[in-house]
Design a protein around this nucleic acid. Structure first.
Lengths: 94, 94
DNA sequence: AAATTTGGTTTATAAAATAAACTACTTTAT
DNA sequence: ATAAAGTAGTTTATTTTATAAACCAAATTT
């Protein structure tokens, strides 16, 4: 009756991040922070979790002299997100 | 950009319970347990939280000689659920 | 009458989210 | 040149949540 909700995506901040990343080529740490309003610490931790799950790729480089962390969704991430959205329907569509 | 997700509803089991209760007059503990597949302990705890938030009413009585816990959604619960579903759209509708 | 089942609650443990503190560096002001 | 403040994060500690395990009281079954 109710489909399972992937616990990795069933988190406000991680869901917001995925929601952003699914719509863009890539996005950096600062942008994600601005869009989500998350604290840096929380964002850092949640990005790590998404990366460890293989849902996003994180590339660390520099823009000029400043460090820059760029994130990009993976195919697995895209799939998981779509599945999560579908599972959600079983809770809210009735 | 992203609307806040009411943390009380952003929980798989509590969401499932609310999803059931929004569609029926009332439902008892045993039925909720069957439909959600939750353990009794978990269900008991989560029902308490929903009741304390004023989202559901819990009535304890007996069916014959056996105890029976009946749950019913409140107006506040209905509102909160609808608001939660709307907030969700900001994450998944793009 | 002992064992099992029903319908739960309470308590303990594991996992998650979040905030606070810290690191490493850059830029700006003195 | 150096101190102060800002940027871009990470790490660690704390709080909150979710979940499971243990328990309780009464009913039913053997």
């Amino acid at each position: 009756m109710f489909k399972e909700l992937n616990p990795l995506l069933h988190s406000e901040l991680r869901l917001a991040v995925m929601s952003i990343l699914i719509g863009v080529e890539d996005a950096d740490f600062v942008f994600l922070r601005q869009e989500t309003g998350a604290t840096a610490g929380n964002l850092s931790v949640q990005l790590d979790k998404l990366a460890k799950a293989g849902y996003i790729e994180i590339e660390k480089g520099f823009r000029g002299k400043m460090p820059r962390t760029v994130c990009r969704i993976t195919d697995a991430g895209r799939d998981a997100f779509e599945e999560y959205v579908e599972a959600l329907q079983s809770y809210i569509k009735r």
